[in-house]
Design a protein around this nucleic acid. Sequence first.
RNA 1: GCCACUGUAGCUUAGCCUGGUAGAGCAUCUGAUUCGUAAUCAGAAGGCCGGGAGUUCAAAUCUCCCCAGUGGCUCCA
Length: 648
Amino acid sequence: MITVEVGDGDVHEYASGISAGEVIANVHGRKSGAVAALVNGIERDMSYELDSNCSVEPITGSSPEGLYILRHSCAHLLAQAVTEMFPDAKPTIGPPIDHGFYYDFYMEPISEDDLKKIEKRMKELVKSNLPISREEYDNEELRSIFDDNKFKLEIMDDKIGHDVGSSAYRQGDFIDLCRGPHVPSTSHLRWFKLSSTSQAYWRADSKRESLTRIYGMCYPDKSGLQERMRQLEEAAKRDHKKIGKEMELYMTSEMIGKGLPVWLPNGETLKGEIEKFAVETEEAYGYLRVTTPVLGKKELFETSGHLPHYAEGMYPPMEMDDGEYYMKAMNCPFHHLVYGNKRRSYRELPVRIAEYGTVYRNELSGTLAGLLRVRMLTMNDAHIYCTLGQVASEVADNIRMVQDYYSTFGFDDYYFRLSLWDPENVDKYIDQPDNWEATQNHLRGILDDLGVEYVEAVGEAAFYGPKIDIQFRTLLGREESMSTIQLDFAAKERFGLTYTDETGQENGEVFVIHRAPLSTHERFVAFLTEHWAGNFPTWLSPVQVQIITISEKHKVHAATVANALHESGVRVKVDDSDNTVGKKIRTHRKMRPAYMLIIGDDETENGTVSIRSRGGEQLKGVPMEEFVAGIFTEITTRDRNLSLIPSE
RNA sequence: GCCACUGUAGCUUAGCCUGGUAGAGCAUCUGAUUCGUAAUCAGAAGGCCGGGAGUUCAAAUCUCCCCAGUGGCUCCA
C-alpha cells in the first residue's frame, strides 16, 4: 500500500501501482475535467503508475498548464490526421501556442479544402476515442522508429547529452516523439478548429527546408472556442486596412510601388491632428523644430555608421555628378549636424531637436503589411543632446510623455521593453562593449528608479545603443514596437559633438537620446484605427459632425448649424439630398462621424438640433449654441469620450 | 528576401475544378418621391476578368513569367 496526498492535506491509501488517473477519479469523480496529473509537483499522464508515497493533484483543461497539454495533444491529433491522409508528410514539431497550436510538416502545401478535410478527419478520430499512450524507448529504438524522418532524427541528435526523456506517444497507428504529458484519449479534444495554413522554415532558418505549417485553435469547452471565434470576427472588423479603405484614410497603388501608402484627405486630417498635438506637447517640453533633406551624401551615412551597420535597410545609392546620395533611413545624422552647426554651451543643454522626418527604408518586401510596416515612414522624431547626468531626467520626461500620449489616445495595453545588444553577435552593433554595458546599466537604473515595469530583450538594441521600447500587440497577436527611447553613446565621437563646459573646456561627453513617442504616423494610425475600430474620439474624427436633413424644407437651418460649427473650427458635412433619413444615416455610418445631427421641423422651428450617437442613442431638442459650445470643448480638450449624448 | 495562398465594375462578390468572348447587390448617373433616426421606387451607365507571354479553332477559366495584396519565416518603427 502507498499513501497519496490528494490536496488540502487529505491522505488516501491505495495499492501500489494504481494510476494517477484512478486516484483523481476516486477523489474528484470521473468528470473532474482533469487532462493530466501533477504528481509530486511534476506533470504526468493520467496513466502514470504510482509505486511509492506521493502527492497527486488533477490538472484540468481550464488551468494554464492543462490548456497547454490539451493544445499539445491537439497538435498530435492534427499530425495523426495529416499523416493518415498524406502518407509522405513528415511531421517535424508541433507546439501549443496562445489560443491553440500549430504543427509543421515537410510536405507539399495544402489548400483550404484540404484543411477542411483534415479537420473532418480529426473529428472522426476524436469520436473513435483512441487511447493516447506513453511508450519509453532507449535512444537506438527511438531512432529506428523515426528513421524515415530526418527532422525527428535531428531533434534527437540535439537532445543527446540533455536530460530529456526518451519517450514517444502513440494513438492508433500514429506515433510521435514527445516528452508529454498528453490527455488520456482523443475524446478529450472536442473543441478545436483549424484556422490557417502557412509556410515556415525548419528551425526558422531560411536556408533550410520550407515546411507547411497548419494552425489550429483549441479550448477546453465549447464556449471558449466560440468566444475565440467571436474575437477573431471582431478583430477582422477592426482591421485598419479594411477601415482605412472604408473611411478613405489612405490608398496604395501598384503604379507607385509596395510599402508606399498615399494619405488621402481623411487620413491627412487625422495625421494632422496627431502632429498638432505633438507640436504643442513638444513646445511645452522645450523642443526646437527643424526640417532636413530626404537625401544625403554617402559620407554622411558613413560617418553616422548607417552604411557599415544598416546598409541593407537603406535604398541603394543614387549616382550624382558629385558623388553618391542615399535616401535617409533615419533623421539622426542630420540632427547631429544641426547640433554641430554652432558652438554649444553647457547652459544650452539639453538641446532637443525635433522633426516630422519622412524616412525611407528598404524593408524586405515580404514583411510589408498595410500601414503597420511600410517603406515610407514619417516619424514624430527628435534627438536630445545632453550630458550623462541629464539623461535620467530626459528619459523620465519621455516616459511621462509617452504615458500621457497613450492616455489621451486611449491606449492601455502595452508594456516596456529594455532592448539590449547581443554580445554574441557584435557585427550588428558598434563594437564598444564597455559603452554598451555602461549605457545599458544606466537605462536599467533609470527604469528601476522610476518604478516602471519592463522586460529585457537581448539583441533588440539599435546598432548605436540600447533602447527602451514600448511594445504593442496587433489584432492578430503579432508584437510590434510602438514608441522608442534610445540612448546613443557613439554619435558624439562619430560627429565630434561637443559643448563648452563650466570650466570653459571643450567637452566631448555629449549623449544623444533618440526618441519617437508616437511611433511613425503610419503605424500609429494603424493602431489607433484598430483600437477605436475607426470610431475615433471627436478631436481625431475626419468628419466630426454629419448633418442630415429630413426634407428640402430644412436645408436652410441645416446650413445655419453647419456654418456655426464651421466657424468654431468643427469639421462638418451636410447631407441635404432627397434620400430618406434612414438611408442617409446608413450611408454616413461608414465614415464614422463623431455625431450625426438630424434637422427636421422641430429643430428648424426651435433653433435646435437632434443628436444621434454612433451607438444609435438620440438626444432631441438641444439648442444649437449648446451643441456648438459642447463639441468645441470636447475637441479642444481632446476628450476621448463622446460626452454630448448619454450612452447606454 | 524566402515559402504558400489570393487578385473579376468604385466596394462586396458569382462564374474558374469540367475552356465556347462576364452575372448580381451596394455605390454612381437620370427620373419619380419630400420622407423623423441602420437600405423609397423605376431606369441607365459601368468590366479588354492585376499585367505579359504560351497552349488551343476558342482562355476570366489551363501553363509560365512579372506586379500587387494576405498569412507565415527572417527582419524591424
